[in-house]
Design a protein around this nucleic acid. Structure first.
Lengths: 336, 336
DNA sequence: TGCCGTCAATAAACCGTTTTAAAACTGGAA
DNA sequence: TTCCAGTTTTAAAACGGTTTATTGACGGCA
């Protein structure tokens, strides 16, 4: 057992309060006594027990972050951004991988909720707004990426998915594509990304005088395989699309793979744009035009917001929901 | 403030000891009472404060893992493996990103060391063996990936880098390559991977009657750009190599990029094999032959070892250093 | 009826620190 | 000598749990 403050007190013939003082408000203790105590501390190799310290003083200098999937570079980049800010204030970071599951996410919240952290960041939370609000109400600082929580007085950051999709589709249109399809997710209660991207897609078609054809709207389940099958369904249509906008890059990879298999040339016969700017997109052939989200910046901003929240307990000083504009990264797959 | 055990006690009309019992030795409390308490716990969303818990009982069901770079898929996979095992025993996981820096790693160790975790996993630690030993000596369970710590009575898992390199080079040789170069890291004190892979490369050449040509051994700093420049140096030689084995895939990507720029065809003019099996390797053209390490399995094993260590305090029951065999994944770039 | 054993629940001690309130010790002024 | 202010020091109360010892209630048995 390591020595405790009691051992030091006994050994040096003073009370434990005095020993504690020597460590903290050192000016309140006589120099002579201080020397004596310091000697004993040195001799016994004492360090204050962190756990006991925390129990009393309630600050733990740790923040937690919950992401849907730690192995996706997108989230890893955000984490790095957050960490950068956390380091500024000597704060540790606990990373939790929710495995894309709401239950797991809930579990982790429960886990972090036990006084392990001073604040939490949720990246694209699947949790209900209510759950998030409850956490915030308990006095824990929180910041959210991926949905607008300003209605609940919670700091949040989003990317303008609508605008990203709109830009992509407009780009395809301006370069001669007229039958533009969309591959996305399903109309789930909490799939804000899908909804906004679909809406952007729709509006871009409408604004450019192209009708919205429901047969051109497909579900690719956000994964490579799903994107591939959605593509196969699309090319079987009487009037197959001449371009596809995918709500993420994974699905676009599936499209590229299946197009190759079916001898459809990209971009000559089919324009393609993805979303997220994952690393593979630069290396695959044809390289993938995509919509880039400033992940690292997002992380930094999340960190900033959270720290702001942790230090100033009241809200409202900063805009509650900050919306970042994504940008189109033009490569080969769109043919422009 | 989140609710405490006192709130639960008051709300449900029992003593705090009873509430505590409901959480721990549940058999000692009447079923009826238990139900009542559980309801209140649920309603108030109570979680026992981990700091308080730890202070009294010395167990907090948390393990920490330190990796060099969270955004590398390689480590993310290992983390997932560990997490899987941790979940089996209802253990939380704290992930720390050391940013490839020894200082940062040290900082995190100090941080975790504060009684925040019951055990730690180090993935390719840059820490000195001594530091690791000291942690273990203090009674904290630890498990290490990437270097053999059995000499210190610490559980460790490694991949047989020597064998991986040997297989790769042998494969190149058997398919007709005679001038095989190596691009790796620098001869750093703690770069065990580099040393073992280089040794495997050397031995494979010797065993097959090819001499070792020091001009063929290059440093690519483990990154894409470094791999590219190393490649450029190699092709300027009087007798440039007809194949390259890279100590990781990143460097191989650099080779592919630069080869393309210099109109050197892979695999026709140059055979290429990487190491690590990163995702991009499947998608790039030509797709990359590489040496695969069973990352997820590594994670699971690390988790197992650590948990074993946490529960049985004595050593020695299991092999202390487990060596896994990596396997060659043959794709286009080696031309076979 | 009185005694005993069993089962449930509680009170109280404890973990190692910080912090607040109180006590003890100084020295100087009345 | 007494009192007071200022400086040091101490005792004791937190912090939020777990755990040990104790109490209380109840039924069975002599």
């Amino acid at each position: 057992m390591p020595p405790t403050i009691k051992d030091i007190a006994k050994q040096s013939g003073v009370s434990i309060s005095t020993v504690s003082r020597v460590f903290n408000n050192q000016d309140l203790v006589k120099n002579e006594t201080k020397q004596k105590v310091l000697e004993v501390i040195e001799a016994l190799g004492y360090t204050p027990n962190f756990v006991a310290k925390r129990l009393r003083s309630c600050k733990i200098s740790t923040i937690g972050i919950v992401v849907p999937d730690i192995s996706a570079a997108f989230y890893a980049e955000i984490i790095k951004g957050v960490e950068n800010k956390a380091n500024d204030i000597d704060c540790g970071l606990i990373v939790c991988d929710a495995h894309n599951s709401r239950d797991k996410e809930k579990e982790y919240v429960r886990y972090l909720y036990d006084g392990r952290v001073d604040g939490m960041i949720f990246v694209v939370p699947q949790l209900r707004d209510d759950d998030l609000r409850k956490i915030a109400a308990d006095g824990l600082a929180i910041a959210v990426f991926g949905k607008d929580m300003s209605g609940f007085n919670i700091q949040s950051i989003s990317v303008d998915n609508y605008s990203g999709a709109y830009q992509a589709v407009k780009h395809l249109y301006f370069h001669g594509h007229k039958r533009i399809a969309y591959i996305g997710g399903i109309e789930a209660e909490n799939d804000y990304d899908h909804r906004a991207r679909l809406a952007g897609y729709r509006q871009a078609l409408i604004d450019n005088g192209l009708g919205v054809n429901d047969a051109y709207i497909e579900n690719g389940a956000y994964c490579e395989e799903g994107g591939g099958s959605a593509f196969l369904r699309l090319i079987k249509l009487n009037e197959p699309p001449d371009a596809i906008f995918c709500a993420n890059d994974e699905m676009a990879l599936g499209v590229i793979r299946m197009a190759r298999k079916n001898h459809i040339e990209i971009p000559e016969q089919l324009g393609l744009i993805g979303f997220d700017n994952i690393r593979v997109g630069q290396y695959i052939s044809p390289s993938l035009t995509t919509v880039n989200q400033p992940t690292y910046t997002i992380g930094v901003l999340l960190g900033e917001r959270l720290i702001f929240q942790m230090t100033n307990k009241e809200y409202g000083q900063k805009t509650l929901n900050l919306i970042l504009k994504p940008e189109l990264v033009i490569r080969e797959s769109c043919g422009c």
